[in-house]
Design a protein around this nucleic acid. Structure first.
Length: 322
DNA sequence: AAAGTTGTCAACCGCGGGGTA
DNA sequence: GTACCCCGCGGTTGACAACTT
């Protein structure tokens, strides 16, 4: 496999672009398109390598680039996609119109990564951190788990399935952590049994859950009568009887989105094309087409914690589907 | 006010995939 | 099948800004 020699050539300018260079590049691409990036700088009268030109165009000069802060929705999309795709920034960028891979990568490293760490979530694996540092930082973890921004359910916000699943999982994690403050029977902070969402582990801890003084997720009063094993079912976990203050169900009770907060399950096509507006039906719910979580996972998804969970839940029969 | 520290982000670097002769 | 070329990706760097001491 040969290497491009273009960047080895001497005398080519590096570093920040000047407005004049930008203008030359814009003018040339407007007239001729970029064509061969390698040939472009010479033809456009730029003393740069093609690589540099391509980067400048795709990351900065392209007319369809969206400027400004990331919205909460974009944040969530990035986190969701990263949990499925890992550091596939270009793939993630493909689902965020107007955002570049470089921008998303920078944003992840400077903002989201820190947020997740503060929440006690490993930004690489998307697993809860179970090391001693996290336990030491438990107060911050609990505070961070106050998902007011994420789970203000009475507002007109469409939460996607992954967000809610994560919220529940974090909720569970904190419960386990709390329990282990009083009983260290089943939680191994040294990592030999570091899957703290292991059902048996949760169930072992269950008798103490109702004694927890702190429920980290506001608006989510813990229903101690709810079977915890249902926590791991994409159906059962959200099937509270009193749903007024609960996380919205995965199954919409009505197809009319405007009537209530509703879990919007993004299917593969939606993730691929983001065609929300022109084709509302492409955003499906379980009731509409029984789209299992497994199908949400794109082929390009890496093996992530969430993927494991989703696959596990999909491997089991869903009672409501019959 | 100055020095030091931390945060941000544009740009670079090197690698690997894919196309082609 | 191999070598070469181009392109795009992900990781990293470094300049500048903002903040803290």
């Amino acid at each position: 496999m040969g290497r491009s020699p273009c960047c080895d050539e001497r005398g080519l300018k590096k570093g920040p672009w000047t407005p004049e260079e930008d203008q030359k590049l814009i003018n040339y691409i407007r007239k001729h398109g970029h064509g061969s990036w390698r040939a472009l700088p010479k033809e456009a009268g730029l003393n740069r390598c093609g690589k540099s030109c391509r980067l400048r165009w795709t990351n900065y000069l392209r007319p369809d680039i969206k400027r400004g802060n990331f919205t909460a929705e974009e944040d969530q999309t990035i986190i969701n996609l990263h949990s499925l795709l890992g550091n596939k920034w270009s793939s993630i960028a493909g689902h965020l119109p107007g955002r570049t891979d470089n921008e998303i990568k920078n944003y992840w490293n400077t903002h989201i990564r820190k947020k997740l760490l503060q929440m006690g979530i490993d930004p690489v694996t998307h697993r809860p951190r179970t090391d001693l540092n996290v336990l030491a930082a438990l107060p911050q973890l609990l505070a961070a788990a106050n998902f007011n921004n994420l789970l203000t359910l009475n507002q007109n916000i469409h939460l996607d399935a992954t967000s809610v699943a994560k919220a529940h999982l974090l909720h569970s994690m904190i419960q386990v952590l709390n329990n282990n403050n009083t009983s260290s029977s089943s939680f191994d902070i040294h990592g030999t049994n570091n899957n703290i969402f292991d059902q048996s582990s949760i169930l072992e801890n269950r008798p103490n859950i109702s004694e927890n003084l702190y429920d980290p997720i506001q608006n989510l009063p813990h229903n101690d009568h709810q079977p915890l094993d249902s926590f791991f079912s994409p159906i059962g976990v959200f099937s509270h009887q009193d749903d007024q203050d609960m996380i919205p169900p995965l199954i919409s009770a009505s197809s009319d989105e405007s009537k209530q907060p509703q879990m919007m399950i993004k299917n593969k096509e939606v993730l691929k094309h983001s065609d929300h507006t022109s084709n509302p039906s492409s955003t499906s719910t379980f009731t509409q087409d029984h789209q299992p979580w497994c199908d949400i996972i794109d082929d390009e998804a890496s093996d992530s914690y969430w993927k494991e969970i989703i696959e596990q839940t999909c491997s089991e029969p869903w009672p409501f589907l019959g």
